[in-house]
Design a protein around this nucleic acid. Structure first.
Lengths: 242, 242
DNA sequence: ATTAGTTGTCTATACAAATAGACAAATAGG
DNA sequence: CCTATTTGTCTATTTGTATAGACAACTAAT
């Protein structure tokens, strides 16, 4: 009677279903009793209990003996505008959120064919790779990998380390302003490497944004790949605004 | 010694890792031998075999006894531009793709608070809900739920049924042109209802786009929620283009 | 105080997942 | 032809998942 053997346990599917019901508002404050949930999902009560246990350690639910199981209030999704002007710090502060970027790694690499085309440098040219982690209220939000031409921006790493801001680091390197040329968005399961970094479940979903920033003459400045945790973010694109 | 009990079987995690390695180009044509994969992922060879079996029935891999396991060529992700002008048919035909929309349901509903605000109608006002399925080469790509004011567009359903196009259905209803006001993007696991409709795995990831279209006077025309299969799509946002 | 309804804990059983080892069958290269 | 390498098949064992039933502990209302 097993629907599809997709390698996902029943309690996990029940947990996902409950999570979805909460997100969509089907379940508001209090969960139905365990026996009812078991019937609804066609599983044993113990399976429901395991699902609830998982969601409880996640902080989404709170079970009280004799009373029932309740939904904890969740922080709303952070809205992240994508458009011509993308400035992480500005965007967050408009929503009364105090952000902080953390440098988690820097490396010198050679441009592969794809990056060479995006950044308009020759194949194999030296690049600075900058790994950042965006944190809001001590909760990891996204992980970014930026690539800069090492020839054009030899000191971008130290400039970022000092200022903690891409915008300011670029200003020190002579780029007074920049804008986004293109943003491509897709979604995947989080990579195992990022699980502890982002403090998320090992099967969390990340929104992936591949973008290229250009200076005012239209020359590529940075190529950046950001992985947003999908359950903490919502990307917003407004044509008119700004 | 279990890393994290997240309800996902080991073979499934190995399968996901292999899929990711293929997507990122770490694995190109041929897979490493099963024993090597087993070591790399810290599992038994049989577990790797099960992962490979799943990916083979999925069409991603092809195992040949005595030779090895090979990666089948995959169709590239369809690039879907989001911007002011969003026209499904036009967008697809630019990429030499012949699309087709299928009407899978229509219903008359009352506006809830959120939809009323988006469409600028009063709470409880009658809406037409239009459910569509976008198909490319007989492969389902996305599922859309459109909402129109039933007062302003009483015949939108039949107009869409005749023309098979939102753009043309709106023209028949007196809207010569429209543009997108805002697009909000997030990602979730596919809902169980959509699994058979979209012909995808029960834990596939969907990119969700919530958008509002407005006419040339700025009045809201439709509110549309589209669920794109993340492994078949890439959303692209270009500020300058058009 | 009693009762109905709820979550928490315990034992037991059937079934699937993962591990382990051995060997067959096909391929490729010397 | 022979050998090394690789995928395919088989048996067996251990561990984890899911089901089943019973009962305790707690809450809220009568």
């Amino acid at each position: 009677m097993h629907a599809l053997d997709d390698g996902i346990s029943r309690w996990r599917r029940v947990a996902d279903a409950i999570r979805a019901d909460i997100a969509s508002g089907v379940i508001a404050q209090q969960l139905p009793p365990e026996v009812e949930l078991a019937e609804r999902h066609g599983v044993n009560r113990h399976t429901v209990r395991r699902a609830i246990a998982a969601l409880s350690t996640e902080g989404l639910l709170r079970a009280e003996r004799g009373r029932g199981t309740f939904v904890n209030a969740q922080p709303p999704r952070v809205i992240y505008p994508i458009g011509e002007r993308v400035r992480f710090r500005e965007n967050m502060m408009k929503q009364s959120i105090e952000p902080s970027g953390r440098l988690i790694g820097a490396e010198r690499v050679a441009a592969d064919a794809r990056q060479a085309a995006l950044l308009d440098v020759s194949f194999g040219a030296p690049l600075h790779r900058l790994e950042r982690l965006a944190v809001v209220d001590s909760m990891p939000m996204s992980r970014s990998t930026s690539l800069f031409s090492a020839e054009r921006f030899p000191d971008i790493i130290s400039a970022y380390a000092e200022t903690g801001s891409i915008t300011q680091a670029l200003q020190k390197s002579g780029v007074s302003d920049y804008r986004r040329r293109e943003t491509r968005i897709t979604a995947e399961r989080v990579s195992p490497n990022d699980v502890e970094l982002l403090q998320c479940a090992s099967d969390a979903i990340v929104l992936i944004s591949n973008a290229v920033d250009i200076d005012m003459e239209g020359k590529p400045v940075q190529s950046v790949r950001t992985r947003f945790l999908a359950d903490r973010f919502e990307l917003s694109f407004k044509p008119d605004t700004d």
